[in-house]
């Protein structure tokens, strides 16, 4: 069975959940071979094995993570040349999509991005126009490269050998042209990552102020979820930009999405419409968000949300 390369998404050795989803998807397409870039594999190897990595290609050289994107692309291109995999899977994060794009240019291969599923033959499923249309696409040329949206495919364990093989690549000068001089890690706190969370609670303009976002945080914490925000809320400076959900923010696909004081503009929906269950609290019965919900309450969020938080905590 041909290998399927899976680029591991990790921050300093901490494996992102999407990697396990990619390994799960890769098993349908061939034999998963994880590609690990940078230090920190020791603590992560077990997890990759548990989710089906038959092999792990390890490229620990620090140079690979000292420059923007291009070194990872040269490494993957070399692995494709050496190992002739059936295809390459990456996470459809900002950087993952860029890696997919550059690799496609390098290999002159077709690329599918932001797929919500991938089936035999590397047929990708896209949920487009904010979830209004489901399209299937496939690659016509070269080695298929597919960027998969986090949280779209359920990760399932299937233990494998995770045999390590050290690999290295000689970088071109062009790959070393955009140097990362400093990494600034912003405090992310105890909550799960927005794009990985099973539950996301988002607040919008209705929340009214930065202080009031505590209501959203309390509800999220009661559910063990992440906090999101509409653009109206991030633009107003009530919540940091990296938590924005929508067309120009993050795309989330949790099991449960709760929209609080959010009208449901199309640009917001584009980032959350594929959530499995949607709940909204809004005082306007005509708010478009109600078109999407499984359950909605027309009411004042300052009454309804704290009551919900209290009720959840009571039931624990």
């Amino acid at each position: 069975m041909a290998e399927v390369l899976v680029l591991v998404d990790h921050v300093d050795g901490e494996v992102k959940k999407v990697t396990l989803e990619l390994l799960t998807a890769a098993r349908r397409l061939g034999e998963p071979a994880a590609v690990w870039v940078g230090p920190g594999l020791e603590g992560a190897k077990e997890k990759l094995a548990e989710y089906g990595a038959a092999k792990i290609y390890v490229a620990a050289d620090e140079e690979l993570t000292s420059y923007v994107v291009a070194p990872k692309v040269e490494l993957l291109a070399q692995l494709v040349a050496d190992k002739s995999p059936a295809g390459v899977l990456v996470a459809a994060t900002g950087e993952g999509k860029e890696i997919a794009g550059r690799l496609a240019v390098k290999l002159d291969s077709g690329v599918l991005t932001d797929v919500v599923d991938v089936a035999e033959g590397f047929v990708g499923e896209h949920s487009i126009f904010g979830g209004a249309i489901i399209a299937h696409a496939k690659v016509k040329r070269g080695t298929p490269i597919v960027a998969v949206r986090p949280n779209a495919i359920a990760a399932e364990p299937a233990p494998a050998a995770a045999a390590e093989e050290q690999v290295s690549v000689t970088l071109s000068d062009a790959a070393k042209s955009a140097k990362i001089v400093e990494r600034v890690v912003q405090e992310k706190g105890e909550r799960p990552d927005l794009t990985e969370a099973a539950v996301v609670v988002s607040g919008g303009r209705g929340v009214g102020s930065a202080e009031n976002f505590k209501i959203i945080e309390d509800l999220a914490d009661a559910l063990g979820g992440a906090v999101g925000a509409s653009r109206a809320a991030t633009d107003a400076g009530w919540y940091p930009h990296q938590f924005q959900v929508g067309q120009t923010g993050k795309t989330v696909s949790p099991q449960l999405y709760i929209a609080v004081g959010i009208s449901g503009a199309i640009q917001h929906r584009a980032g959350m419409q594929t959530s499995k269950t949607i709940v909204a609290i809004n005082k306007d019965p005509d708010a478009p968000i109600f078109e999407l919900v499984d359950f909605g309450v027309v009411g004042d969020l300052f009454q309804v949300a704290p009551q919900l938080t209290e009720e959840i905590n009571k039931r624990k």
Binding site: V111, H136, K140, P285, D294, G296
Partner: peptide, 20 residues
């Protein structure tokens, strides 16, 4: 290098329950 093989409108979400 890639092609869309089919495209269909997503089934509308089942109408949810809305209470006041």
């Amino acid at each position: 290098a890639s092609e869309v093989v089919d495209a269909t409108e997503a089934p509308p979400r089942a109408k949810g329950q809305i209470v006041t």
